[in-house]
Write a protein that binds this DNA or RNA. Structure first.
Length: 270
DNA sequence: CGCTGACCCTGACGGC
DNA sequence: TGCCGTCAGGGTCAGC
């Protein structure tokens, strides 16, 4: 499920319940995630107070005085707040017990996510080479233009490269390219500065509006059923191969780029 | 350095 | 009803 807007929605949902609270316990039922969950995770976390919940790319960082819990949701992960006495379901791999009967519960059928420890002052290798946040002023059309010179790979792969800009997943890469009128298979190095200005703006716009919509499910995040309405009804191209383009009515086409499905309108996107 | 493809894993779905 | 292939929002890594 998680693209950047959902990770951010998760962050906003859990933050008020975590900040200022002490960690009373950690239960790891299944340590085999993308990387093994460290054995000493419970020892490191118990007794620590969560000072903040931050996000970098699609990673969540639960900061304490001695370091941070680094969480990634992978393809199928979710973090929810549940009553500490709620019995775990299948694929509920990890519980972080907070100090007053609230439990932060990690669910991840495919186990592509991770739960790692990052000591205070350390720079985790997973975070070391990440590009700018898409919603920050560090990211703009100039960054895309400069970094793309000489690149032959498709522009869609290029904007999904975390060293260029973080947090642009498959859905929003497709959507932003459609809105920008750029074919996903066009070589990144052969796109003008002006078009990259538009693309950067549209990446920001598309992510921002998705976060806003994620926010609408936020109020029942605690004790919610875990299936937010999401924003599928707003998608213009993703998941719509063969259906008419919302702009010109031509059938949307699908190609695979970097093993990921890419949907576009051959008329509107050049 | 840039690029491609394999891989990690479970579950849903369509065709037969 | 079941079996099989394909695909799914993530990202790393080896190899060329």
């Amino acid at each position: 499920m998680p693209e950047l807007p959902e990770v951010e929605t998760t962050r906003r949902g859990v933050e008020p319940h975590c900040v200022g609270r002490a960690i009373a316990g950690v239960v790891v039922r299944e340590p085999r995630l993308r990387w093994p969950v460290p054995n000493q995770l419970a020892t490191l976390l118990v007794g620590q107070i969560i000072e903040s919940v931050e996000r970098r790319a699609k990673y969540l960082l639960f900061r304490t005085q001695t370091g941070s819990l680094l969480v990634h949701l992978g393809m199928s992960g979710s973090l929810r707040l549940v009553d500490a006495d709620a019995s775990p379901a299948r694929h509920d791999h990890i519980d972080v017990l907070l100090d007053d009967e609230v439990c932060l519960r990690y669910h991840d059928p495919r186990r592509f996510g991770c739960f790692l420890w990052l000591g205070a002052g350390e720079n985790h290798p997973l975070l070391a080479h990440l590009g700018p946040e898409p919603l920050s002023s560090q990211f703009d059309g100039d960054v895309l233009y400069q970094r793309s010179r000489g690149r032959k790979s498709p522009v869609k792969n290029f904007i999904m490269d975390g060293k260029v800009v973080v947090g642009v997943g498959n859905i929003y890469a497709n959507e932003a390219l459609f809105i920008s009128g750029i074919r996903p298979d066009r070589a990144a190095g052969r796109i003008s500065a002006a078009r990259y200005q538009r693309l950067a703006k549209n990446i920001k716009q598309v992510l921002t509006s998705a976060i806003d919509q994620g926010g609408t499910t936020l109020r029942d995040f605690v004790g919610g059923d875990g299936s937010p309405g999401y924003f599928a009804q707003r998608l213009l191209v993703y998941g719509r191969a063969g259906q008419p383009c919302t702009c010109c009515d031509a059938a949307l086409r699908e190609v695979r780029l970097g093993q990921r499905s890419s949907v576009f309108c051959a008329t509107c996107q050049r």
